[in-house]
Protein backbone atom coordinates (compact mmCIF):
# COMPACT_ATOMS: atom_id res chain seq x y z
CA UNK A 1 0.00 0.00 0.00
CA UNK A 2 2.84 2.31 0.79
CA UNK A 3 4.36 1.56 -2.60
CA UNK A 4 1.09 2.44 -4.26
CA UNK A 5 0.60 5.75 -2.41
CA UNK A 6 4.23 6.65 -2.90
CA UNK A 7 3.99 6.13 -6.64
CA UNK A 8 0.67 7.93 -6.81
CA UNK A 9 1.40 11.05 -4.77
CA UNK A 10 4.85 11.63 -3.32
CA UNK A 11 6.53 10.40 -6.46
CA UNK A 12 3.83 11.37 -8.88
CA UNK A 13 5.35 10.80 -12.31
CA UNK A 14 4.02 13.99 -13.85
CA UNK A 15 3.95 16.53 -11.06
CA UNK A 16 6.98 15.47 -9.03
CA UNK A 17 9.24 13.61 -11.42
CA UNK A 18 8.08 15.63 -14.44
CA UNK A 19 8.12 12.56 -16.66
CA UNK A 20 6.04 12.10 -19.79
CA UNK A 21 5.21 15.79 -20.04
CA UNK A 22 5.13 15.70 -23.80
CA UNK A 23 2.16 13.36 -23.97
CA UNK A 24 0.44 15.15 -21.09
CA UNK A 25 0.65 18.45 -22.95
CA UNK A 26 -0.53 17.03 -26.22
CA UNK A 27 -3.35 14.84 -25.04
CA UNK A 28 -4.80 16.89 -22.20
CA UNK A 29 -6.99 19.08 -24.39
CA UNK A 30 -10.10 17.09 -23.58
CA UNK A 31 -11.02 15.02 -20.57
CA UNK A 32 -12.14 12.04 -22.63
CA UNK A 33 -8.83 11.85 -24.50
CA UNK A 34 -6.92 12.15 -21.25
CA UNK A 35 -8.91 9.33 -19.70
CA UNK A 36 -8.35 7.08 -22.71
CA UNK A 37 -4.65 7.80 -22.81
CA UNK A 38 -4.39 7.32 -19.05
CA UNK A 39 -6.07 3.92 -19.15
CA UNK A 40 -3.77 2.86 -21.96
CA UNK A 41 -0.74 3.88 -19.91
CA UNK A 42 -2.03 2.13 -16.76
CA UNK A 43 -2.46 -1.09 -18.73
CA UNK A 44 0.91 -0.91 -20.43
CA UNK A 45 2.75 0.18 -17.30
CA UNK A 46 1.28 -2.53 -15.11
CA UNK A 47 1.77 -5.38 -17.54
CA UNK A 48 5.24 -4.42 -18.65
CA UNK A 49 6.18 -4.05 -14.97
CA UNK A 50 4.87 -7.56 -14.28
CA UNK A 51 6.81 -9.12 -17.13
CA UNK A 52 10.00 -7.21 -16.52
CA UNK A 53 10.11 -7.89 -12.80
CA UNK A 54 9.32 -11.57 -13.30
CA UNK A 55 12.16 -12.02 -15.77
CA UNK A 56 14.55 -9.71 -13.93
CA UNK A 57 16.69 -12.59 -12.67
CA UNK A 58 17.29 -14.07 -16.11
CA UNK A 59 17.71 -10.74 -17.85
CA UNK A 60 21.36 -10.19 -18.73
CA UNK A 61 22.39 -6.73 -17.50
CA UNK A 62 23.86 -5.61 -20.78
CA UNK A 63 20.78 -6.70 -22.70
CA UNK A 64 18.15 -5.24 -20.39
CA UNK A 65 17.37 -2.18 -22.53
CA UNK A 66 16.47 -4.07 -25.75
CA UNK A 67 14.43 -6.52 -23.72
CA UNK A 68 12.54 -3.73 -21.96
CA UNK A 69 11.80 -2.15 -25.31
CA UNK A 70 10.50 -5.39 -26.78
CA UNK A 71 8.23 -6.01 -23.79
CA UNK A 72 6.90 -2.46 -23.67
CA UNK A 73 6.37 -2.17 -27.41
CA UNK A 74 4.49 -5.46 -27.40
CA UNK A 75 1.94 -4.10 -24.95
CA UNK A 76 1.78 -0.75 -26.71
CA UNK A 77 1.02 -2.47 -29.99
CA UNK A 78 -1.69 -4.57 -28.34
CA UNK A 79 -3.30 -1.42 -26.95
CA UNK A 80 -2.99 0.27 -30.35
CA UNK A 81 -4.76 -2.59 -32.15
CA UNK A 82 -7.53 -2.86 -29.58
CA UNK A 83 -8.10 0.89 -29.64
CA UNK A 84 -8.23 1.00 -33.44
CA UNK A 85 -10.71 -1.85 -33.50
CA UNK A 86 -13.02 -0.89 -30.68
CA UNK A 87 -12.51 2.84 -29.98
CA UNK A 88 -11.78 4.28 -33.43
CA UNK A 89 -12.65 7.86 -32.47
CA UNK A 90 -10.35 7.79 -29.45
CA UNK A 91 -7.61 6.20 -31.50
CA UNK A 92 -7.90 8.94 -34.12
CA UNK A 93 -7.73 11.64 -31.47
CA UNK A 94 -4.74 10.24 -29.65
CA UNK A 95 -3.09 9.58 -32.97
CA UNK A 96 0.64 9.17 -32.77
CA UNK A 97 0.73 9.45 -28.98
CA UNK A 98 -0.35 5.84 -28.52
CA UNK A 99 2.61 4.33 -30.41
CA UNK A 100 4.80 6.92 -28.69
CA UNK A 101 4.05 5.37 -25.30
CA UNK A 102 6.89 2.99 -26.21
CA UNK A 103 9.35 5.78 -25.47
CA UNK A 104 7.27 7.38 -22.72
CA UNK A 105 9.70 8.15 -19.93
CA UNK A 106 7.29 6.97 -17.25
CA UNK A 107 6.98 3.47 -18.64
CA UNK A 108 10.64 3.19 -19.45
CA UNK A 109 11.79 4.84 -16.24
CA UNK A 110 9.65 2.53 -14.15
CA UNK A 111 10.90 -0.53 -15.98
CA UNK A 112 14.52 0.43 -15.54
CA UNK A 113 14.29 2.11 -12.15
CA UNK A 114 11.75 -0.03 -10.32
CA UNK A 115 10.50 -3.22 -11.93
CA UNK A 116 13.95 -4.58 -12.77
CA UNK A 117 14.93 -4.39 -9.11
CA UNK A 118 11.77 -5.30 -7.19
CA UNK A 119 9.37 -8.18 -6.73
CA UNK A 120 6.39 -8.79 -8.98
CA UNK A 121 3.82 -7.71 -6.37
CA UNK A 122 5.64 -4.47 -5.64
CA UNK A 123 5.99 -3.82 -9.33
CA UNK A 124 2.27 -4.29 -9.92
CA UNK A 125 1.48 -1.80 -7.17
CA UNK A 126 4.06 0.62 -8.44
CA UNK A 127 2.73 0.31 -11.98
CA UNK A 128 -0.87 0.84 -10.91
CA UNK A 129 0.10 3.76 -8.68
CA UNK A 130 2.21 5.54 -11.27
CA UNK A 131 -0.33 4.89 -14.00
CA UNK A 132 -3.16 6.15 -11.85
CA UNK A 133 -1.06 9.16 -10.84
CA UNK A 134 -0.44 9.95 -14.47
CA UNK A 135 -4.08 9.45 -15.40
CA UNK A 136 -5.52 11.49 -12.54
CA UNK A 137 -3.19 14.41 -13.06
CA UNK A 138 -3.80 14.38 -16.79
CA UNK A 139 -7.54 14.08 -16.25
CA UNK A 140 -7.58 17.11 -13.93
CA UNK A 141 -5.40 19.15 -16.26
CA UNK A 142 -7.52 18.16 -19.23
CA UNK A 143 -10.74 18.99 -17.38
CA UNK A 144 -9.50 22.49 -16.56
CA UNK A 145 -8.30 23.03 -20.11
CA UNK A 146 -11.43 21.66 -21.74
CA UNK A 147 -13.83 23.59 -19.51
CA UNK A 148 -12.02 26.89 -19.95
CA UNK A 149 -10.92 26.38 -23.52
CA UNK A 150 -14.06 24.85 -24.99
CA UNK A 151 -16.79 25.33 -22.43
CA UNK A 152 -17.59 21.62 -22.32
CA UNK A 153 -16.58 18.71 -20.14
CA UNK A 154 -16.18 15.05 -21.15
CA UNK A 155 -17.24 15.60 -24.74
CA UNK A 156 -16.70 12.48 -26.84
CA UNK A 157 -15.89 12.99 -30.51
CA UNK A 158 -18.68 11.59 -32.66
CA UNK A 159 -20.78 10.76 -29.61
CA UNK A 160 -21.73 12.46 -26.37
CA UNK A 161 -21.43 16.23 -26.90
CA UNK A 162 -20.26 16.80 -23.34
CA UNK A 163 -21.64 18.69 -20.37
CA UNK A 164 -22.08 22.36 -21.05
CA UNK A 165 -20.42 24.06 -18.15
CA UNK A 166 -21.00 27.63 -19.20
CA UNK A 167 -23.68 29.20 -21.36
CA UNK A 168 -23.78 29.59 -25.14
CA UNK A 169 -22.10 32.98 -24.97
CA UNK A 170 -18.99 31.46 -23.46
CA UNK A 171 -19.03 28.52 -25.90
CA UNK A 172 -18.71 30.94 -28.81
CA UNK A 173 -15.75 32.78 -27.32
CA UNK A 174 -13.92 30.40 -24.96
CA UNK A 175 -10.45 31.00 -23.53
CA UNK A 176 -8.75 29.61 -26.60
CA UNK A 177 -5.30 29.81 -25.10
CA UNK A 178 -6.17 27.00 -22.69
CA UNK A 179 -6.50 24.50 -25.55
CA UNK A 180 -3.20 25.63 -27.04
CA UNK A 181 0.19 24.63 -25.57
CA UNK A 182 0.61 27.69 -23.28
CA UNK A 183 -2.57 26.72 -21.46
CA UNK A 184 -1.11 23.26 -20.97
CA UNK A 185 2.07 24.59 -19.39
CA UNK A 186 0.17 26.98 -17.15
CA UNK A 187 -2.18 24.29 -15.91
CA UNK A 188 0.61 21.80 -15.26
CA UNK A 189 2.55 24.44 -13.32
CA UNK A 190 -0.54 25.27 -11.31
CA UNK A 191 -1.06 21.65 -10.32
CA UNK A 192 2.63 21.21 -9.49
CA UNK A 193 2.39 24.17 -7.15
CA UNK A 194 -0.74 22.80 -5.58
CA UNK A 195 0.90 19.45 -4.80
CA UNK A 196 4.01 21.16 -3.42
CA UNK A 197 1.83 23.32 -1.21
CA UNK A 198 0.03 20.24 0.11
CA UNK A 199 3.29 18.44 0.79
CA UNK A 200 4.75 21.41 2.66
CA UNK A 201 1.67 21.80 4.81
CA UNK A 202 1.69 18.11 5.64
CA UNK A 203 5.43 18.19 6.38
CA UNK A 204 5.02 20.75 9.12
Amino acid sequence: MKTFINALLDNNPVLVMALGLCSVLAVSTSAYNALGMGLAVIFILTFSNIIISSIRKVTPTNLRIPIFIIVISTFVTIVDYVMKGYFPALSKNLGVFVPLIVVNCIVFGKAEGYASKNTVIDSILDGLGSGLGYTLVMFFIASVREILGQGTWMSIPGGFPGFKVFGEGFMNYPVLMMILPPGGFLTIAFFMGLLKFYQMRRGK
Binding site: P60, L63, I70, V71, T77, Y81, V82, K84
Partner: peptide, 29 residues
Protein backbone atom coordinates in the same frame (compact mmCIF):
# COMPACT_ATOMS: atom_id res chain seq x y z
CA UNK B 1 24.91 -18.01 -25.32
CA UNK B 2 22.73 -16.99 -22.41
CA UNK B 3 21.91 -13.42 -23.55
CA UNK B 4 21.18 -14.63 -27.07
CA UNK B 5 18.89 -17.30 -25.74
CA UNK B 6 16.99 -14.88 -23.50
CA UNK B 7 16.60 -12.33 -26.25
CA UNK B 8 15.34 -14.95 -28.70
CA UNK B 9 12.79 -16.26 -26.19
CA UNK B 10 11.54 -12.76 -25.43
CA UNK B 11 11.28 -12.03 -29.13
CA UNK B 12 9.38 -15.22 -29.92
CA UNK B 13 6.90 -14.80 -27.06
CA UNK B 14 6.29 -11.19 -28.01
CA UNK B 15 5.81 -11.99 -31.70
CA UNK B 16 3.42 -14.82 -30.85
CA UNK B 17 1.34 -12.62 -28.58
CA UNK B 18 1.20 -9.85 -31.14
CA UNK B 19 0.16 -12.07 -34.01
CA UNK B 20 -2.61 -13.46 -31.82
CA UNK B 21 -3.94 -10.01 -30.95
CA UNK B 22 -3.48 -8.83 -34.53
CA UNK B 23 -5.58 -11.65 -35.92
CA UNK B 24 -8.26 -11.08 -33.31
CA UNK B 25 -8.58 -7.36 -33.94
CA UNK B 26 -7.94 -7.22 -37.70
CA UNK B 27 -11.51 -7.94 -38.84
CA UNK B 28 -12.81 -5.32 -36.43
CA UNK B 29 -10.28 -2.73 -37.60
Amino acid sequence: IKPTFVLVIVGIVSAGLLSFVYNKTLPEI
